[in-house]
Design a protein around this nucleic acid. Sequence first.
RNA 1: GCGCCCGUAGCUUAGCUGGAUAGAGCGCCGGACUUCGAAUCCGUAGGUCGCAGGUUCGAAUCCUGCCGGGCGUACCA
Length: 560
Amino acid sequence: MEFIAIMKQKIKDLILNASLDAYKKGDLPSSEFPDIEVEVPRIESHGDFSTNIAMVSASVQKMSPKKIAEFVIKHINDSDGIVAKAEIAGPGFINIFVNNLSWHTVLRRIHEEDAGYGASDVGRGRKIQVEFVSSNPTGPLHVGHGRGAAVGDAVANILLFCGYDVQKEYYINDSGRQIRTLGLSVFLRYRESFGEDIQFSDDCYQGDYIRDLSIQIKEHKGNDLLGQDEEEAILYCARFAAEKIIAGIREDLKFFGVEFDNWFSEQSLYDSGKVDKVLNGFRSQDIIYEKDGAHWFKTTDFGDEKDRVVVRNNGQTTYFASDIAYHKDKFERGFERVIDIWGADHHGYIPRIKASIEAAGYSKDRFSVILIQLVNLLRGGEPVAMSTRSGQFVTLKDVIDEVGADAARFIFLTRHHESPLDFDLETAKKKTNDNPVFYVQYVHARISSIVRKGREAGIEKIEWDDRAMDMLKEPEEINLIKTMTAYPETVKCSAESMEPHRVTFYLMNLASSFHAYYNKHRVLTDDPVLTAGRLYLIIAVKKIIRNGLALLGVSAPEKM
RNA sequence: GCGCCCGUAGCUUAGCUGGAUAGAGCGCCGGACUUCGAAUCCGUAGGUCGCAGGUUCGAAUCCUGCCGGGCGUACCA
C-alpha cells in the first residue's frame, strides 16, 4: 500500500478511536459516526491531513462541529507518535500535522522501489486493449495523429504501470472506398507520367507522396499497367501504395517512440468471414432489416438515435459493418476492457459502436472511447496552413524533425485531451520556461550534475542514514518530500481517469519544488552528514522525474 | 432542430470526481550568478470560476434553464 493511503488509514483509526473514547467518557452523546473522510488539504497551513468528522456528524451528535472537534482532539491517543499537532479550523475541520520522521520514511521507499515507485496492481492483471492512431493508409501522419499517438502510448504505459495486461493495437483500414481512391489517385499520376493529360477530381489525393508512389510503380512495372484491365491496375496501385504508406507510418511512429504490439488489418475481417458471420448473427436475432434495397442494423434498439446501414443497396458493406466485426473480435480475443482513441469529430460514432457491442452480447461498459481534440499548428503565434486537399500539410515527421520527439510528446500531454491544443513550433524549440519539457528535463540533468560533482569529491555511497535524515528539516525539504508522496496517487488517478496529463502536471509541479529548493539551499556542503541527507533526497527526486517521464515516453537526460 | 464537448486572471490553462482564502505558466513591473548547471529562482499587480436558479453544513465541481463557442448529425471512412 502506498504511504499516503497508510497514513490516511492510521489517522482515520486514530480519529475514530478518539471519538469512541469521547463517547465512552461521556463527552459525546452518540456512538454513531457517519462515514468520515481523511484527505490531504490543498493549502499547506491546513495541515498534512484533515478530516471532516465533526461536520458530518453534527446532526447525529446534535452538537456544533467545533464542539465535537474539540472533544475528538482531546481524546486522541497517538501511541505511534506520528502526530505533531492537531487543530480545529474553518467550519470544523480537524487538521493534523505529521512529524518529519514520518515523511523521511518515504525517501527510503522511493530508493528501494526505484523504477517501480508509484506502480500498483489496481489492474490486477486484467487484459486491456488500447487502440490508437489507426490512421487510414492513404497518406502520412500529421500532427493530429501525433497527439493521438502521444496520448494513446502514455495511457497504455500508465495502465501497464498500474498492473493491467496491456496491448497496443493499430487498426489498418486497408479495405473499402478510400483505398480504391488511393489506388486511383496513384494510377492517374502513373498515367500522367506517360504523357497523358489527366483531370484530377476533387476527391483524389494529391500530395507529393502520391507522385512518388507512382514513380516507384513505374520503376517496378514499367508501362505494364497501361495495358491491363483498369480495375485491376487500380487495385494493384492501391495495394502497393497502402503497403508503402503503412511502412512509412510505422517508421514515423518508431521515430516518435511509439511501437505497437499488434497491427490489425480490416481486410482480414473479410477474408476470415467474420464480417458476414456477425451480420448473419444479427439477422438471426432480427436486428437487421431491409429497406430501400439496403440492410439496416437496428441500433435504435440499443439507444442510438437512428438505425444504420451495414450493406448498401449496391451490395457493398459499409465501414461500420467491418467495425462491428472488429469490436466483437476484440472481446473474443479476451480483452476485459477495450479503449479506442479517436479524433473528437468522430464522437457521433460512439452510440452505434456501443450498440453493436451490446448486440454482440458484451456489456458496453467494457468499452470506452477517448476523444482527442484538434491540434492547431502555429509558428510564432501564426497559424500554419494545413490543407489536406492540396496535400500541403505539415507531417508528424516534419514536426519531430524540427522540434524533437521529446518536446512534441510532452507538449501533446500538457492539456486535457478533450480541449483543443495550440502547438507552436517556435515555443517547442525554446529552451526556456515557456517550454515545459526542458523545465522538467533540466531537473534531471541538474541533479545528475550534482551527483557527479559529489562523486568527484569522493562521495560514492548514498544510502539511508538516520543521522542524515534528521538533518532534513528545512520547509523546502519537507515540501519536496510531500510532493513526492503524492506521486503514486497521481499515477493511479491518471490510470483510472485515463488522463495522462495529470502526470505531466505533476512533474512540472515537482520540478518547480525542486528548482525552488535548489536555489535556496546547497546540496554539497561542508557537513558530510547534511550532504549525505540532501543527496539522498535529490536522488529520490531524480528517480521520480525519470519514472514519470518514462510513462510519458520522454527521455530523462543526464546532461543537456 | 437534436446530440456531444467546452466557457476559470490580458493570453494559455490546473483544480485530486463536493471541501476551507480558486492554483500555475506566459506577458507587465522590480530583484537574485566570485560557491553544486541563471535552460533557474524570489517578489508585486491581476478573478462576480459565462448568467440565473436549485440540491446541503459546504458548489468552479452535482441538477435545471438560458447566453456564447466548437464538433457531429451519410447507403464516407
